[in-house]
Design a protein around this nucleic acid. Structure first.
Lengths: 200, 200
DNA sequence: CGTATGATGGCATCACGTGTCATCACTTCG
DNA sequence: CGAAGTGATGACACGTGATGCCATCATACG
């Protein structure tokens, strides 16, 4: 498969990230991106549904990968443990090597609400994939949906902390830290008005 | 203020919801909406940033309202309790009266990924408003962000259950049910491999 | 060598979204 | 009571995003 240039989508992605970083997202037109990649506008829209989608090429396989991780997980775990198992497997992967690229892309995404919007949709799609995998594993619908959503929040939160913090702290460490924080927050608000809130 | 017709935005919203329900979202053009409302295309884009935004007119004041609720909340509560306090105040409000309208709008939003995308952005903006209010109240940044995100997930989950379930179950009941479910899920996955997962 | 397959180029077309200026209704003030 | 001011709307032009359609070219296969 892939005959002419097998990396048309990758070339377009490279050109887009370069141009977005140089001129900004709105100042870059689709013909600009296609021209730098040596292709035409029509070809761009054959590889990407719209202009925003070019920034999320790498995330296309995420839902399937996470669903596979949940399916392979050891049996006998509750939904929340299953989700955390899958997320830790992802965090412990080779994601650490791509920190620089992820940071560059994040700067672009955060510069435009349109792109943040798309990022949220991709995150929701990932949560839905996790939910479906949990349901397929026998979990109750409501439990599966909530566990998947909470897992998505935990992963986004730890990713944010990992990218913002020093580079000697691993994503896995941040994920476990977020997991601890969640546990503390949810447990604390249990009928105890004397619980002091954290000071600044 | 508001001289000619003080409800231009509301008329446009009505026209849009009618047309979206009749022909579908993509088959309806902005000139169509403006014509039914007795206005022009240019005026439509003065009231709404884009075509999708017309479906979220009512949610514009949500962030400010929730931030106000969190500011007025009794002191001495931890971040999670503060968020739940605010969400319960909203759920106990007059939201129950609008169930029909909310259902109609939800059907449109779920028919198009573009609209679901915008809904997620609005939800994220609400979570950010809660986070900022918590930080202003003295909470730690990480705790505030996580509590706000979890609160948003809980509210969306309970709203979904409320809209899908029988109409004699209140939103407040669903919210507290989701809160219980979260507590159980987070507590269960605590170092106990013998915990059985829920059967179908 | 001829044909089939699939990616790409080129063109036309429509809808979205914005900048700009004119117009009209209503208010305010002399 | 009339004139200037304010603010919403109408009208027009324009660039970009996105899609349908057909032609073209390179590669694979018989």
């Amino acid at each position: 498969m892939a005959r002419w240039a097998p990396d048309a989508a990758l070339r377009l992605e490279r050109a887009a990230i370069e141009l977005f970083s140089e001129r900004g997202y709105t100042a870059t037109t689709v013909p600009d991106i296609a021209a730098r990649a040596g292709l035409t506008t029509r070809t761009f829209f054959r590889h990407f549904a719209d202009k925003r989608d070019v920034l999320f090429l790498r995330e296309r396989e995420f839902p399937a990968v996470v669903a596979g991780l949940l399916a392979e997980a050891p049996a006998g775990l509750d939904p929340m443990a299953l989700v955390l198992h899958g997320l830790e497997a992802v965090a412990a992967g080779d994601l650490e090597r791509w920190r620089g690229d992820i940071l560059a892309r994040r700067a672009i995404v955060r510069s435009e609400p349109q792109l943040r919007e798309r990022e949220l949709l991709k995150s929701a799609a990932l949560a839905e994939a996790m939910r479906d995998a949990l349901v397929a594993g026998g979990a109750a619908d409501d439990d599966a949906a909530l566990a998947a959503s909470v897992g998505s929040v935990l992963f986004d939160s730890s990713m944010e902390a990992w990218l913002r913090g020093p580079d000697d702290v691993t994503l896995l460490t941040e994920l476990r830290s977020a997991r601890e924080r969640l546990h503390r927050l949810v447990s604390a608000q249990r009928s105890d008005p004397s619980a002091a809130r954290a000071a600044s």
